[in-house]
Amino acid sequence: MEDRKQITFNVLCFNPEVDEKAYFKSYDVVLEKGITVLRALNYIKDHVDQTLTHRFFCQAGICGSCAIRINGVSKLACTTQVWDELETCKTKDQIIVEPLNNFKVIRDLVVDIDPMIAKLKKYKSWVVPMVKDEDLGKKECDVKPEEFEPINAATDCILCASCYSECTITEADRHYISPLVILRAYRMNMDTRDTAGEERTRLLQEDHGIWDCTHCYRCVEACVKNIPIMEAIQGVRHETFERGMTNTAGARHAKIFLDDVKGGGRLKEATLPLRTLGPIGMIGMIPFALKMGAKGRVPPIFPHKVSTHREVKTLVEQVEKESKKKD
């Protein structure tokens, strides 16, 4: 009764012990509808090729182990239905499976995520509690539901690294903070029980930090938990202003950004670096720009006006009004 079909999995394999470079191995398997990509990979490992190497644990979309690229997009293998992927195959019924981007491959689909953990540490991704050590456990902190709300979505993050793999800037600059670490920082900064906001924000606005993000939205699109990561990015940026940390290239950039948005509804990105860094600073950007250009990610020189320009403009004005009120 159930649909069955032969499907080819083209898996990018690499065992540095023996292979000079990565290559695609093809596995033809007959599967029935309703099966996830992880189950398919496990089937291949158990029945076809015991050397196929991938990570998984919970098989329930909560541990974050099984993120890989499926037909070019980073996502969890255990929550992805094979039949859904058939719709995006370049060649009919051939699914391409690759390891996450922006990490070193250990073997086949397994990548080294230690640099991600190192960044979590670098940016102090933890609450530094306002309760003194000797008073821990004595009484609850008072957190109103509306104070909890802003961190609710951010605490969904399972550290699967899909967003890290998709991030354009992480690809160009391995030291870049990365979207999930910004999300963590935001989650901690918004927590009314935390006391390290000032220190964390100072770290965030340094080089390789929040001002390097280009709003490409790829992390938002990739997030397996649909977390609005951009809100976090905007949120921590806003916080740098609130804390008076305005003397970075990024903060100046943001001011120009505001002017731009008000003027055209969309950023004149191609000329933006010049205005932020000045002609001399621009020279430092050249290698970066070349890298971006090579990857086809240079913004168009004459951006279109976005259709919702009016809304954007009102929004910006609203934000400005609000922040003036605060001063």
């Binding site: 456990g137 539901p145 961190i151």
Partner: peptide
Amino acid sequence: PILIRELENLGAPFSRLEDGSI
């Protein structure tokens, strides 16, 4: 109760009642 409060103090995001308690 001590453990839950301790964990809460350390940042665990428990859902809240209107009065701000866990």
